[in-house]
Design a protein around this nucleic acid. Structure first.
Length: 121
DNA sequence: ACGGTGACACCAG
DNA sequence: TCTGGTGCCACCG
């Protein structure tokens, strides 16, 4: 593709790091979840979980990226004023995949955490 | 350039 | 359990 115009799109293609993050997120299978720190670590970005969250923030809810399969280290959906309901959508999408939340709105990481393998795919 | 903020995580009290 | 501080670093004004 000719990038003659080079629009300032804050998309995946514009940010190699984000593209890498999205690729990992895409690996998460149906019914499984991963934590922000886990995603970061897989990319050799230990300690930079925030960037993962920021990358996902830029993903549209209707994207093909299963952004809803990423939760925090406590197994909870990170609530934020900025999300205005998308956090609820995340829970709904997860429940559609069979993920069960307890009374504390927490899911069992021991049960649903995705274990990446070399021969994924 | 700079400081505040944040879909996080970890550690000390 | 909860609070507060630290590390990380991209984004925004």
């Amino acid at each position: 593709m000719v990038l003659s115009s080079a629009p300032k799109e804050t998309n995946a293609e514009a940010k190699p790091l984000y593209a890498a993050i999205y690729e990992v997120v895409r690996q998460i299978p149906f019914g499984k979840v991963a934590t922000y720190g886990q995603i970061a670590e897989l990319l050799g970005l230990y300690g930079r979980a925030r960037q993962v969250g920021y990358a996902l923030f830029q993903v549209a809810p209707d994207s093909d990226i299963p952004w809803h399969r990423v939760v925090n280290a406590q197994g909870k959906i990170s609530r934020s004023p900025m999300r205005q309901g998308n956090d609820d959508l995340q829970r709904i999408l997860l429940e559609r995949e069979g993920v069960v939340f307890d009374a504390q709105e927490t899911l069992s990481l021991a049960l649903y955490r995705w274990s990446p393998k070399h021969s994924e795919d």
